[in-house]
Amino acid sequence: MSGRGQVRFEDIVKMHGEFAALKGVTFEIEPGEFFALLGPSGSGKSTTLRILAGLDAPSAGRVYIDGQDITTADARDRDIAMVFQSYALYPHMTVYENIAFPLEMARMSKAEIVPAVQEAARKVAIEHLLQRKPGQLSGGQQQRCALARAIVRKARLFLLDEPLSNLDAKLRLETRTELKKLQRSLGVTAVYVTHDQEEAMTLADRMAVFMAGEIQQVGRPADVFARPNSIDVAAFIGSPPMNLIPARYKDGGIEIAGHRLETSLKESGERDVVVGIRPGAVRIAAGGIPAVVELVEDLGDTAILDLDCSGISIRARVSDGDVPREGTSLSITARAPDIHLFDATTRRRL
């Protein structure tokens, strides 16, 4: 049974009338992987998930699961389990009946169903709630019930559509960790849709970043964070977002506010670029770009500085020890490896 849950999307296009929701999406998911589809709302990530589930049909392109072309297969024949954003628990059934439903549909005998439901409920720690109705559960318990219903069938693919977005902040962090553990212990392939880049970063083995119906970048979260391949990805990933400053590149360096910074790109010649520097990579050091502290947002262990560098706004993250006061003049710089360069016209990474 190894190698179950391998997914391949080939040039998937989805048209809604004249509007292209997906403009040719291609990617692959390895068996056992926790794969995140990340992007702002309307970027096509949910459409991608729905096409994978068989709830929507692509206008062109093909979808393969385990090498098998399932583009035209019915949702119920795909052997896929899904957790909906709203959980979609059946309100008229008890928790037990909810979890048992997919097994019943698979025509399993009662003797098989009972232990399977118990097992699934135990994995998400809701064994004591089996006789309740969904309306009698808290949000977190409902979410677990939805999870149990999805894992009980041991489907080859496990889809999650923003499953944490309806939980409050504290519970979301706890559940996130448990979700990851659960997926690891089951060894199942998981596809996870989220607009929350932090969620994707912490959960995913790999992720695909969606923008306007296209995949901008696929890779391990750390790699995407370290080397965003376009301005849009750079702006989307990381909080607070990366500083993006239009500048002039000349012979291996850039010039911001009249001050030259060296970059790792060594090319001769001159061009317009967009410079990206993460707030955390901005260093306060003498001899750099002169800046004035306009605003300090103290987050406790760190602080975010809004800096004004002769008309250019730059945000910097500093650790708690050396927070300058508002109005202070200082000078900033960044190390060459921390400076990302993007083409001003193609918006791609240089």
């Binding site: 949702a75 119920r76 059946y90 008229h92």
Partner: peptide, 29 residues
């Protein structure tokens, strides 16, 4: 009734008729 009810039922392997009978109709009792 939210659309996800039907979609969840399809993914759980229910046919259209079963979905109507087991999932939707009990909710509009």
């Amino acid at each position: 009734i939210p659309f996800e009810m039907e979609e969840a039922a399809y993914l759980d392997g229910a046919s259209r008729m079963k979905t109507l009978w087991r999932i939707i109709i009990p909710q509009v009792r």
